[in-house]
Design a protein around this nucleic acid. Sequence first.
DNA 1: GCCTCCTGGTGAAATGTTTCATATACAAGG
DNA 2: CCTTGTATATGAAACATTTCACCAGGAGGC
Lengths: 327, 327
Amino acid sequence: MKNAMPTMKDVAQEAGVALGTVSKVFNGIPVGESYRIKVEEAARKLGYQVNQYARGLKTNKTNTVAVILPGVNHPFFAALAQHICEALARRDYRMLLYVTASNPEIEQNCVNMVRQNKADGIIGLTYNPLAVDEDLPFVGIDRSFRADIPCVAADNYGGGRLAAEKLLELGCTHLAFLRTGSSSPSETDKRGDGFEAVCRTRQIPCEVLRRNDGEDGPEVFREFLLAHMAEGKLDIDGIFCSTDLLAWRIQNILAELGLRVPEDVQIIGFDGIRRFGGEELYCSTIIQPAEKMAETCVDLLLAKDRSNIPALVCLPVSYAPGGTTRE
Amino acid sequence: MKNAMPTMKDVAQEAGVALGTVSKVFNGIPVGESYRIKVEEAARKLGYQVNQYARGLKTNKTNTVAVILPGVNHPFFAALAQHICEALARRDYRMLLYVTASNPEIEQNCVNMVRQNKADGIIGLTYNPLAVDEDLPFVGIDRSFRADIPCVAADNYGGGRLAAEKLLELGCTHLAFLRTGSSSPSETDKRGDGFEAVCRTRQIPCEVLRRNDGEDGPEVFREFLLAHMAEGKLDIDGIFCSTDLLAWRIQNILAELGLRVPEDVQIIGFDGIRRFGGEELYCSTIIQPAEKMAETCVDLLLAKDRSNIPALVCLPVSYAPGGTTRE
DNA sequence: GCCTCCTGGTGAAATGTTTCATATACAAGG
DNA sequence: CCTTGTATATGAAACATTTCACCAGGAGGC
């Protein structure tokens, strides 16, 4: 039974009122009590549902936000996606999710598609700088696009500092910073900056290895570690990894090399992802406040007053031991 | 600069052609070479993008599919979401994602909202039976809604059988089946059915404990296991868990009770989720073909010919050892 | 040279809303 | 009883598309 879906006109007729009156009822504009009741009854009877497409055409508002993420298979991205979706739902918005596999072409393509789909705004975590539209509200995660586009990020710099301070507090005397990531600059680069800054100030030796995706095979890190070994011992005793995933991979390499964590070398990661099915961390880590980040993105994007939104919002991180440090 | 976005009318004027001609060009309807070029040039010059909302209003097609999932924080759901999104993108469709926390009210609400948003169809993995619309294409995952709504699922029955056969092949003589899940019937219930069927046929003792979400605290399982222990030994030597997550929790309880896996008891889970950052499984398990399931959902939903779609599609599962069995 | 046919461009109508200028009804004041 | 003012319902216009009946122009046949 393909009964054409009822329209406002049908409701108006059924209720014996004018079209405009029906519109008012569904937009919460005050209307005579008796009229409201008549309309509501007619709508219920016909099973009327507003057509958001017609509404969007008229108002240029769609109550839809596009979210662009590299993927949703990574626990941190998954948490972001979930929290953003929930925060949007609370405000009666829906989420149009695009996944890009961090492919620059696809990323740009998504931005273009969003323009067609008339989302009310975009929240984007992308690995590449993008051409984003002038008059489409945009909030970046971990990346600044333009002065007038806000960026939400964890306090990466502070997190890097915190990692260094923790390792030193735990007795380390020779540190290393290892990172992977995109070659294009991002807020997450500050993790290393903060870490190195502490080492510099405190005059602690700090080895650094920065790799970009695509050139970050395990052998690179193994070589780095081997170069710092003599007689089966590592001269480094504290490692800060730019992500928990990298920390995990480093642990595997260290195990192969016959080194023990945290006895021989302590490791701190970044992200705070949990093992599935519990609260257990993969490693000692700097925790990013995923929920708070999601909430902030949504707040900024949907802010009524877009005149004075900050260019960058840094949210506080925290340290949590996860078995790869000695405490 | 809030330059109103250019419309087809603007393009038509710029190109010096009629409105209908512009429409044809953007819909791939053949049009004179010279006209096509004029239109394409004008569109490029003005930065024209079709307005999908106006188009949707006219055609009742939106190239958008709504996906309803309990959440995206579970590796299996995340994999589904990602694969569905990619499969849709390949067909030039976008994904509107709703997360429900498996709350029946929210689930129903999502279905209603989709009607408003005029998605072209719904792919839904829900924990509760829903009232779904007559004329909105729907594909269920793991759940049959109505005879005319297709359901895509892994071969749960076959997976259950496979688990039993594997455990027996590995020398078990006294089995158990543990499950959690929703109380409302679902395809996933067949996991236990298949498992028990093998035990029955082969006359193997099989203990069964079925719990529903909300009544599946760890103490329930601990008690069950304690009831089967005597002098620090378990009389059960092979356990099939309805999910990998449950298998993981059972492992923890067994460890607390001083039992070793797989020496004292072997365990097989269901799902095939991987530890983050690698291919490592959480346990020996029956693997669900997430990508194939996603692809199938999309195929069924967007099938041109909706006259003879199957009521149920069962996709083959496979067994993989993951350290909780002796092989 | 004229008529017919056919190809393909044209522009008005229609889609389901919101908005706004207009109309109506009713109350109060003279 | 008439006037004025206020409050509120009305319905036409507009939004950006697609579609379709119509029309123009060129080709081919007699």
